[in-house]
């Protein structure tokens, strides 16, 4: 099933399909290894849901949930 990354629920896994964020953010995500084809695992969200912790490439990354809207993923 395809969806956007901000909708991935805690505990779920997905593979990144397309990163459509602003160029600066896309570059930054790339530095952290978040590119199409990367397997991610949603660890948890912050109390108000505005920050999401993703597990990818052996590390946990905290990102603003609204920045994840423009990242398409395929859920497992």
């Amino acid at each position: 099933m395809e969806t956007s990354l901000d909708r991935l629920r805690p505990g779920c896994r997905a593979v990144i399909m397309k990163v459509n964020t602003a160029p600066a953010l896309t570059r930054r995500l790339r530095d952290f290894g978040l590119v199409p084809g990367t397997a991610v695992h949603c660890r948890y969200k912050s109390p108000w849901g505005d920050v999401t912790a993703l597990y990818l490439r052996g590390a946990v990354l905290a990102l603003r949930t609204k920045d994840l809207r423009r990242i398409r993923v395929r859920c497992e």
Binding site: A24, L25, R28, L29, F32, V51, A53, A59, V60, L61, A62, L63, R64, D67
Partner: peptide, 9 residues
Amino acid sequence: STFIMELPP
């Protein structure tokens, strides 16, 4: 701006 931060173990 954006916020990206690593959460270390």
